[in-house]
Design a protein around this nucleic acid. Sequence first.
DNA 1: CATTTAATGATAATGGTTTTCATTTTTAAT
DNA 2: ATTAAAAATGAAAACCATTATCATTAAATG
Lengths: 152, 152
Amino acid sequence: MMGRGRGAWWQDRFADRGARITAPREVVLEILQETDDHVTAADVYVKAHERNPSIGLTTVYRTLDMLTQMGIVQKFDFGDGKARYELVNNPGGKKHHHHLVCLRCKAIVDYTEFLDDELEFIGKTQQRLSKKYDFDITDHAISFYGVCARCR
Amino acid sequence: MMGRGRGAWWQDRFADRGARITAPREVVLEILQETDDHVTAADVYVKAHERNPSIGLTTVYRTLDMLTQMGIVQKFDFGDGKARYELVNNPGGKKHHHHLVCLRCKAIVDYTEFLDDELEFIGKTQQRLSKKYDFDITDHAISFYGVCARCR
DNA sequence: CATTTAATGATAATGGTTTTCATTTTTAAT
DNA sequence: ATTAAAAATGAAAACCATTATCATTAAATG
């Protein structure tokens, strides 16, 4: 139903990198796929620990970091002292979106509108940057900052 | 030469907010204007302390935070555990730019190219978002993520 | 099965950032 | 000016998310 064999879509990416598919890593991926929020490492840890009490916080951090480096997860910092994580491509989950951040109360609005123009612009820019700086670009993030109605 | 009276461009913004123009704040602004880097709070503190040893680290943090909320400074987190700050509009300083981040070594490339297309896209999107979500948008950030040549 | 390598988890340590609180400075009022 | 009220400051302590350490366990390899 997805990918080759009976593995999930991300398993091939692990293989390419020589990373082992372990129980804790599977649990973390599961959890990320089930949520639509920007979760913190602690959030993931709590849920992971419920399913498998042997999973430690350290491993959650390490796994999230690995996934970030692989481009499977995107790491954000909205300014409240905790990093947030979310799947880059969540099949059947939340779709591509960007963020609108209130500089006062740190509220986050996820917007999915107006992405048609973006597609063209990002595509072209990514290609140019990629070539000029010899980067293997896998992702991007756009954030707008301002003050929300309630804080004004 | 700039703004009204003999004040710097940011003084009016302070007045509007009822924020006082104090010596430590002036020093922090000076320092930010003199650099083209993404400085950490500690960086600013060291320089500020040189000019006026009575300035404390706490005040530097508080000032940077205030400036961020006012939209005068942009705060970044590139994933190395320290927040970075830079002036949004630095007259005579570094020009508008965005970032290309290596997910492995966390190297940052500031790019200033290809901003013509951006101008149009960002302008339109900002206006739409502003209206739809009732946000007073003052700034934006675009980041591309990938793996640099050396890490590949 | 044996061996090597990777991954894990409990704990301790780290360190950037924030809180606390007494003091000082600035502004507004008298 | 003098005084009273409010804002800003700084030293030190507290916080807390994240990372390093290291002994143990699990997985891949031949």
